[in-house]
């Protein structure tokens, strides 16, 4: 069959290859988002000196206070829209939240009317036991709360079986920060084509930057295993005492709410 290779070459003209997306733009955006951590490792000596002087000026002005424990050295930063995940050198020690401050309890139907996105509900675990909405984040933040039981053990950090948080990442690019110490694991992955970050192992700190645009933190607490998923312009957090396989199953079952 001497013509096989020629035929394969001809086949190239017929086969549809997907159009290349604009990868350069997204890579540039992600590089800019992690620039503070990344630049330190790669800057030329002169640029590093200039950056050090600039950083000293900024620190002197007291403008950097988004994370309360400034002793954390940021080793690496990853991000989705709405959240930055930072690898820090020291184990976090924020308080465990005694009560979840997730806003006003509402019905899912009302929540769907009040937030600026269509809520996603994880079909794998059914309708939530409690729904809450807060407006510290632009566009609103939705919390779906599932009681312990039905394979969802009580979380040491939230007191509930499963907590699903949703907000508009594009409207709140710097709202959430997660600081993961040496005992935590960070893994980037894709779930049904959606970008995601899995944080597990030792507890990590969750910070809410001041939603009104100033420096400071409105909330900080310890958090357990969490899967962060970028679903279009909505950032979804799935937090609970679960392994990645279960978190994936829950994330993979997210569907737009019928009441949205």
């Amino acid at each position: 069959m001497v013509d096989l290779e020629r035929d394969l070459q001809l086949l190239r003209r017929d086969v549809v290859v997907p159009d290349t997306p604009d990868i350069a733009d997204e890579v540039a955006r992600r590089m800019a988002a992690r620039a503070p951590a990344a630049k330190r490792a790669r800057l030329s000596p002169r640029a590093a000196l200039a950056l050090a002087v600039l950083a000293a000026l900024v620190l002197a002005a007291g403008a950097v206070a988004a994370i309360p424990d400034a002793r954390h050295a940021v080793l690496r930063a990853l991000g989705l829209e709405g959240v930055t995940v930072e690898r820090v050198a020291t184990q976090p020690h924020a308080p465990v939240a005694h009560t979840l401050r997730i806003g006003q309890p509402v019905s899912l139907e009302r929540a769907a009317r009040e937030v600026s996105f269509r809520p996603l509900v994880p079909r794998a675990v059914g309708n939530p036991d409690r729904v809450a909405v807060s407006f510290e984040a632009a566009g609103g933040e939705l919390s779906l709360v599932y009681a312990p039981g039905r394979g969802l053990p009580r979380s040491r950090f939230t007191g509930v079986g499963l907590l699903v948080g949703e907000l508009r990442g594009d409207l709140n690019p710097d709202l959430l920060k997660k600081a993961v110490g040496p005992g935590g694991r960070i893994r980037t992955l894709a779930i049904r084509g959606h970008r995601a970050i899995w944080i597990a192992g030792a507890p990590h700190e969750l910070f809410y930057a001041n939603a009104h645009g100033g420096a400071g933190v409105t909330k900080a607490r310890l958090a357990g295993n969490v899967l962060l998923v970028q679903r279009g312009n909505v950032l979804v957090r799935i937090e609970g005492e679960m392994k990645l396989k279960e978190a994936r199953r829950i994330a993979g079952s997210l569907r737009p709410s019928a009441s949205g």
């Binding site: 290859v17 997907p18 990868i23 890579v27 992600r30 894709a190």
Partner: peptide
């Protein structure tokens, strides 16, 4: 992107893999 597509069989996964690859290559 095309190499990642040939490996993953998915345009979405290929886009993610290419982005992550470029970021790692920069580092």
């Amino acid at each position: 992107f095309r190499v990642a597509w040939a490996i993953t069989g998915s345009a979405a996964d290929a886009e993610d893999a290419a982005q992550d690859g470029f970021l790692k290559a920069f580092g």
